[in-house]
Amino acid sequence: MSENASFFRSDDEGPGRLRLHLNETPYGPPPGAVEAVREEAGGHLAHYPDPSARTLRAALAWHFAVAPEMLTVGNGVDELILLTALTFAAGPDADVTCTAGTFPGYGEAARAVGASVRALPLTERHAVPGAAMAAALADGTDLAFVCNPLNPTGSVLDATEVAHLLAAAQDAPGRLLFDEAYLDFAGPDHDHALEEVRNGAPALVTRTFSKAWGLASIRLGVLIGPPADIARVERTARALPFRVSRPAQRAVLAALSQPAHLERVRTETARAREHLIKSLDTIGVTALPSAANFVMAELPDGADSSRVTARLAAEHRVLVRDLTLLGLPGRLRITVGTVPQVEQAVSALAAVLHTMEPSS
């Protein structure tokens, strides 16, 4: 199994395991979503979905305050990232830019379509290197991926940083994509990229229903951007006519009718995230500030994050993400669960660290 395949593994479903390694929400989907899936499966499991997802796209356009022709949907953001790479950066002469130490799907998509990959180092505060990314756009990269909030550190771009990237994209030949899978946790005050795209900025934005909305298993991602770019992506996607299942379309329609659920998840996550950061500090583990539903924690005394992760799983049934695979050894990404789950995870980590021998 490749390193990236290991990063995406989710086959740890034994009883009693605390799953804090895939950034899933502990609060579940909005009211009515499960019933919508059950009803759709019960009556239409033998029927293909609407390939255009017309009803869903109209609802999403209203939700995101854009015209319907400014968005398309896919089988998760992962598929939309691949379709975008196929559309704008396919072939050995193409160049894709992303940041090092982040979601590996960008590089995987680029390599899958034959493009070369430029991975820009994070800043000293583990944030997106805005100046370097803007320079890559000016230099002619075909496609630039900006993860915002940044996975796995949780840093989020402010309005000035977004404006700087958009200014670079304005005259650039390539495309700029803001992957905002976790922006629901940061809240609408950070909708800088989407607001500019609404007003005609030449960029793309992705959003997902897998994270804050609690619908990870049904896979629904949204790509928003200029109508001409969306039309090009949809032409690429014609090879996959039934990408979003009927249950997925129904579930998201049901979710969109429950906006209070999203606000509750955001509030509860922020409360538990603060508790997690403070609790980690009490056991000598430093966590970066985060706007997402995870934190990046730096282990003390050079502790081996791979060994810590393995022991947490084997001895305490607590699953967290070792960031060695992303070039960040000695660090863990810990999903923010409920407050009791946070306390369970920190207690387990303290027990493991207390009995760890120093790394040689």
Rank of each mutant, 00 (worst) to 15 (best):
V205P: 07
D78W: 04
R198I: 08
R250A: 15
F88P: 08
M356Q: 07
A90L: 09
V162Y: 11
E161F: 04
A291E: 10
P226F: 07
D142C: 08
D229E: 14
T324W: 09
P31E: 12
G330L: 12
S360D: 13
V318R: 05
I81Q: 12
T97Y: 05
D191N: 02
L165M: 12
D191I: 00
V77H: 02
E180M: 03
M356A: 08
T309Y: 04
P329K: 12
L280V: 09
D322I: 12
V318S: 08
A61C: 12
A313H: 15
L18N: 06
A138N: 05
A36D: 05
R19C: 10
L71E: 10
L157V: 05
E39N: 10
A313I: 12
Q170M: 03
L177Y: 04
L276P: 01
A287R: 03
H261Y: 14
T309D: 04
R321P: 04
R198H: 05
R198G: 10
S245C: 07
M356I: 00
T355E: 01
L323R: 04
S360A: 06
L349M: 15
P15V: 10
A251S: 11
D179M: 02
P149D: 12
P300N: 10
P121Y: 13
T355D: 00
A287L: 01
I218L: 15
Q344D: 09
E196P: 00
H190K: 01
V233H: 04
S257M: 07
F209N: 10
R307L: 14
D78L: 13
V156F: 07
G221L: 14
S245R: 11
L328D: 08
K211C: 11
E298R: 15
